[in-house]
Amino acid sequence: MRNLLTASVLFLSFSIAAVAHAAVENTAVQARMDAMKAIGGAMKTLGNMAKGSVDFDATAAEAAVDVVAVQSAMLPTLFEAQETDPMSEAKPEIWTNWDDFVAKANAMTAAAEAVSIVDAGSIGAAMEAIGGSCKGCHSEYRM
């Protein structure tokens, strides 16, 4: 059941992202943006639960964490080739500091895989661990 829910969340995330980035011409850049959008959507799900704007749902929270883990694990492959597009927010430093970029992507994956959401109170710690890795990469590699 959990795999089905994770797959559904991924599909929905990619569907929404595809509409949001319709102006992107480069398919490799589009795939990167879709992955980032899926991670952002998962973090929004967790954030809404943490704020109490939606009820805590352990299955949905774990599915959101799974989305982050799966998508972040794909980032080194998605960014391997230096592709460009006017809509891209990727800085060229990704490729000049490749090992650091990969380490930061791997740190996000490890953070997502390490969290355990057992109740609403554990969402904050999960978001802090994952969010710190997001910020670490975005501050250096995103325009």
Score class of each variant (00 low, 15 high):
residue 1 M to L: 12
residue 4 L to P: 00
residue 6 T to H: 08
residue 7 A to D: 13
residue 10 L to C: 04
residue 13 S to L: 02
residue 14 F to S: 07
residue 16 I to A: 09
residue 18 A to F: 11
residue 18 A to S: 12
residue 19 V to S: 09
residue 20 A to W: 01
residue 20 A to G: 00
residue 27 T to S: 15
residue 29 V to N: 04
residue 30 Q to G: 03
residue 31 A to M: 08
residue 35 A to P: 01
residue 37 K to H: 14
residue 37 K to Y: 12
residue 40 G to R: 04
residue 40 G to F: 08
residue 41 G to V: 05
residue 43 M to T: 06
residue 45 T to C: 02
residue 46 L to W: 02
residue 47 G to C: 09
residue 49 M to I: 10
residue 51 K to F: 06
residue 52 G to A: 11
residue 53 S to E: 13
residue 53 S to I: 11
residue 54 V to E: 08
residue 57 D to N: 14
residue 57 D to R: 02
residue 57 D to E: 11
residue 58 A to N: 00
residue 59 T to H: 08
residue 59 T to L: 15
residue 61 A to D: 05
residue 61 A to Q: 07
residue 62 E to L: 12
residue 63 A to W: 06
residue 63 A to V: 10
residue 63 A to F: 13
residue 67 V to L: 07
residue 68 V to P: 00
residue 70 V to C: 01
residue 72 S to Q: 06
residue 74 M to G: 01
residue 76 P to V: 10
residue 76 P to E: 10
residue 77 T to N: 09
residue 81 A to D: 12
residue 83 E to F: 09
residue 84 T to C: 00
residue 85 D to A: 06
residue 85 D to V: 09
residue 86 P to R: 06
residue 87 M to C: 05
residue 87 M to H: 03
residue 87 M to I: 12
residue 87 M to E: 15
residue 88 S to V: 12
residue 89 E to C: 00
residue 90 A to E: 00
residue 93 E to K: 09
residue 95 W to V: 07
residue 96 T to N: 07
residue 96 T to G: 01
residue 99 D to F: 02
residue 99 D to K: 12
residue 99 D to Q: 14
residue 103 A to L: 12
residue 104 K to S: 00
residue 105 A to N: 14
residue 106 N to F: 01
residue 107 A to R: 01
residue 108 M to E: 05
residue 108 M to L: 08
residue 112 A to C: 10
residue 113 E to M: 03
residue 114 A to M: 06
residue 114 A to E: 08
residue 114 A to G: 11
residue 116 S to E: 15
residue 116 S to Y: 01
residue 122 S to L: 01
residue 123 I to H: 00
residue 125 A to G: 15
residue 126 A to R: 00
residue 129 A to H: 03
residue 129 A to P: 02
residue 132 G to V: 12
residue 133 S to F: 00
residue 133 S to V: 11
residue 134 C to L: 10
residue 135 K to C: 02
residue 136 G to V: 09
residue 137 C to G: 03
residue 138 H to P: 02
residue 139 S to W: 05
residue 141 Y to R: 06
residue 143 M to V: 05
